[in-house]
Design a protein around this nucleic acid. Structure first.
Lengths: 334, 334
DNA sequence: TTGTACGCGTTATCAC
DNA sequence: GTGATAACGCGTACAA
């Protein structure tokens, strides 16, 4: 038998509104009556029924987080960041796995809306579709995390992969490598394009000519790394270093390099991108560009709560930089 | 401006009760009135307010999942399993990161209770404390996943690590290795004890004497593996194989083995435990015992929904077996 | 400082 | 087949 405000009111001999005020620490309650009420609250272990509160205030203390797959290392790390901030603000998080499917996303949105969830964070790759934009244009609090939309009208937090790629390439150049091959993801992939952009920028800063032959496009997997290296090895002038667009590609490349009898980093330097656990397990430990996943979650959540509380938003678009982690697959700086 | 049942009722010229019946596909509504109502529902894109529903029915379509840390590979995989089943049943999942702290767990429970969350899955290591047991003894639906309680009075789903360890040891024996060292976690750790149990069982089946000197206890990390191997190497009779109690330990051991100039699997065989991504990246690919993480989530969720729906529960305790994944760090079977 | 009265949007139990 | 009416438990404007 759960106890309600009404019960408490009867016991103390006051009205329900007074009980309500006392419980919510609102002014306008006499010292002694408040004490009496709070005493009974403890005694009977009274817990306000959140459902009733939610209905009365037409709001919940929950936010929604829509992402492709919580079991992925990347997304679960971001989710943790979101949750930590949410808890601080007294909110809980509902995580929705969309598997990147638009249909799922829309049905989640419906659910979240009709449950009066306070706001939504959209996390994931891919471009944003019209419906999401429309949703954002209404007054529903919504933040885009690591999702891209051409005009960027919605509040967003993104990771600047171009800068990360530039840093990685720059490190290789600073370490003395000159001919640097880029083994990248699919040509039409946004992430891959950003990485290419950063790579080119770094070359330009060193006045090194960009050579199409040093660019390999493939999938985001190990095979691409392995085959990719064999590919560039065939060039009349083989590369001195490999920039792999993610860690798995790097792993594949390293296998191929070792297989060929080359030494890392002496003969060939390697840089990865992502900083997963494998980078520290592989031999030699991989120099890589670490993505600020947790921070992505934290920033997105902060931005969402700014929206919910209708605070001023400093920057509509927040850009996070990735961080270079130097290990042993690149030569020491001179 | 959101539309409500009241609005619909006025437009059609019927009472709210009729609208409610029509929307919920309940009998007792005329063909034509129902059609008229559903038509307007579409036209105005009416969505029932779940908050009001929840209050009226005193229940929500949500379950809680309390786990140590969603960013961990293990837990996020389980979480995915839980969510997939929940969605099928029309529920959403609230994930709560306790970091293994009892205080956090209790405060989450309070929140979930006062929000009338339909049920809770407790996921995590460690023993269950009294409060959880008390909670379970009330009529609140609650399932323990991968948590251990001595008497196991609460509905639970657990992974039998002893059997897994036994399988791993057995494989080594079948492959011809005889002196097998076990590099394990902390002595007082439940998981470590289970692994030891399985190890012993397998030895017994082969009539091989158990030797204390072949057991190393340490942390669940790489160093333990590295140092552990160096330790057993000092024995007058060094081991022919290493059974590592998790993959990280195995990685450390492999490093030490290679450093010593031994060949894997010819000179020394290695088996890990867990099946993380590193097992396939390392050279040679690691033979290991894979934990059914996703299945753990699925089974736990299924059990919880049985409780919620008050179905008959077949087995109060469900035991999942781990699966042996044979790669290249052990000799081929003869 | 306290109480009254109503609203929040829906479900459920009666009547008719 | 349909319609009042009362819950569900709490917040709040207004009156006292």
């Amino acid at each position: 038998m759960t106890i309600t405000m009404k019960d408490l009111a009867q016991m103390v001999g006051v009205s329900e509104s007074t009980v309500s005020r006392a419980i919510n620490n609102k002014p306008g309650v006499g010292e002694d009556t408040r004490d009496k009420i709070l005493e009974l609250v403890k005694k009977y272990n009274y817990k306000p029924n959140q459902l009733a509160r939610n209905l009365a205030k037409q709001e919940t203390k929950m936010i929604g987080l829509i992402l492709p797959d919580i079991s992925s290392n990347f997304y679960s790390e971001v989710a943790r960041g979101v949750q930590d901030i949410a808890i601080q603000s007294g909110y809980q998080v509902i995580i929705c796995n969309s598997d990147g499917k638009e249909k799922e996303e829309l049905s989640y949105i419906e659910w979240l809306e009709s449950n009066k969830i306070a706001g939504i964070i959209f996390l994931g790759s891919g471009l944003v579709n019209d419906k999401v934009i429309k949703l954002g244009l209404s007054d529903y609090p919504i933040v885009l995390a690591n999702r891209f939309v051409e005009d960027l009208i919605l509040p967003s937090v993104i990771i600047d992969n171009a800068v990360g790629a530039s840093k990685a390439t720059d490190l290789l150049l600073k370490s003395g490598y000159r001919r640097i091959a880029l083994i990248n993801g699919p040509k039409d992939n946004l992430q891959a394009q950003n990485i290419l952009t950063g790579y080119k920028e770094a070359l330009r800063a060193y006045n090194i000519e960009f050579k199409e032959e040093l660019i390999i496009n493939g999938d985001w997997d190990r095979d691409t790394g392995y085959e990719g290296f064999l590919e560039v090895l065939k060039l009349t002038e083989p590369p001195e270093a490999i920039f792999a667009a993610n860690d798995l590609i790097a792993v594949g490349a390293i296998e191929a390099i070792k297989m060929g009898g080359f030494l890392i980093p002496e003969d060939i330097g390697v840089v990865g991108f992502e900083d997963t656990i494998v980078t520290s397990v592989i031999d030699p430990p991989l120099t890589t560009v670490a993505q600020p996943m947790y921070q992505l979650g934290v920033s997105s959540a902060n931005k969402l709560f700014s929206l919910i509380n209708e605070d001023e938003i400093k920057e509509r678009i927040e850009i996070l930089e990735s961080r270079l982690v130097v290990r042993k697959s690149t030569k020491k700086l001179i």
